[in-house]
Design a protein around this nucleic acid. Structure first.
Lengths: 154, 154
DNA sequence: ATCGGAAGCTTTAGAATTGAAACAAACCCT
DNA sequence: AGGGTTTGTTTCAATTCTAAAGCTTCCGAT
C-alpha cells in the first residue's frame, strides 16, 4: 500500500462519515418536523427542480439509485397525491412524473426548513471554504473511471 | 434564501452525489469480484481495525447506522463463519464481535482490492488536493450541532 | 413489414435500514 | 435490599435499496 493509497482511503472514510452524519441529521429533522423521509424528500426535490417533470429513468439517474427503487417511492407519493404520473405523448412506455399542486406546496415548506438545516450544519465553514470544498468535490466526482451517468437536461 | 445558504445547499448536493457515485462503484466491484456487499465489507473493515473486537453498539456508532441494522448484518456474517460473538466477562448483556481467522483471511484480500479501487477513483486528485479535501471534510464533520456520537476508543 | 435488439418501466427476491418497542442486565439512590 | 433508570441488544413493521428477470414498446436494418 503506497502512502498515497492510504491517504485516499482516509479521504474515502471521511467522505462517508461526513455524508452519513449529515444524512442522519436531515432524516431525523424531516421525520420530526414533517413526518416524512429522506428518500421521499429527495424525489420531491428532484421533481421540484424540473417543473415539467422527469421520466422514471431520469429520476433514478438524478438520484443515483436503482430503477426499481424509484418505482416504489413514487408509488407511495402517488398514493398520497403528492406526485402524478402522466403519459408521454409518442412513447407509451414512459411516464412524466411531476409534483401535484399539493405536492409542490408541501415541498415548499420542507425545502425552506431543509435549507436552514443544511446551512446550519455548515455555518462554521465560511464562504471561502464552502466554495473550496465544492470545487474539490467536483474534481473528485469527475473521475474518468466513474460518473458515466448521463446528465439529464430536460 | 441567503446566497450562502444556496452555496451550502449546493455543497450538500455535491457531497451526496460524490459519495453515492463512489459507493455504487465499490458495491459493484465487491459484488463482481468477491460476491459480497458494501455493508458486510464495512462491518468487517471495522472489526479489522479493532482486533480485540467491538461490541454491537460500538459497531453501530462506528458505522453510523442503527442498532437493529448491525444485528442483521452480523447475524448473516456469523452464519457464514466470518465473525463470531463472544460474551463479555462481567456484563452478560454485551457481546464482543470479532473476525474469525477465516473472516480475517477473507477480508485481507478484499481490503487490498478495495484500497486499489478507492485509490483508482482518486488517482487524478494528487496528494495536495487529497489532503486539502480531507482537512476540509474534517472541519465540516466537526459541526457543533452534529456529530454527538461518542468516539469508540476500545 | 418484420425481426432483433434496445429502451423504459415494473416486479421479484432478498438484503439493508430505520425508529420504536421489548427485554434483560447493570447501575444508581436511598 | 428495592425501585427506578440507564445500557446493550434484539425484535418488529415498514420503508428503502439493489440486482436480475420480465414485459411492453420503440426503433433500426434489412
Amino acid at each position: 500500500m503506497t502512502p498515497s493509497s492510504r491517504d485516499h482511503l482516509r479521504l474515502w472514510l471521511k467522505l462517508l462519515e461526513t455524508t452519513r452524519q449529515s444524512e442522519t441529521l436531515l432524516r431525523e429533522n424531516l421525520r420530526r418536523h414533517f413526518g416524512t423521509t429522506l428518500p421521499r424528500f429527495d424525489v420531491m426535490a428532484a421533481l421540484d427542480r424540473f417543473p415539467k417533470g422527469l421520466r422514471m429513468s431520469d429520476l433514478s439517474r438524478e438520484l443515483r439509485v436503482s430503477n426499481g427503487n424509484v418505482t416504489g417511492i413514487v408509488d407511495r407519493l402517488v398514493d398520497e397525491g403528492l406526485v402524478a404520473r402522466e403519459g408521454v405523448p409518442g412513447d407509451r412506455r414512459a411516464f412524466r412524473v411531476l409534483l401535484t399542486p399539493q405536492g409542490r406546496a408541501q415541498f415548499a415548506a420542507q425545502a425552506r426548513a431543509h435549507a436552514r438545516w443544511v446551512s446550519g450544519m455548515m455555518a462554521h465553514l465560511g464562504e471561502d471554504k464552502t466554495a473550496a470544498l465544492t470545487a474539490l468535490l467536483d474534481e473528485l466526482a469527475e473521475t474518468p473511471s466513474v460518473g458515466r451517468g448521463k446528465r439529464n437536461t430536460a
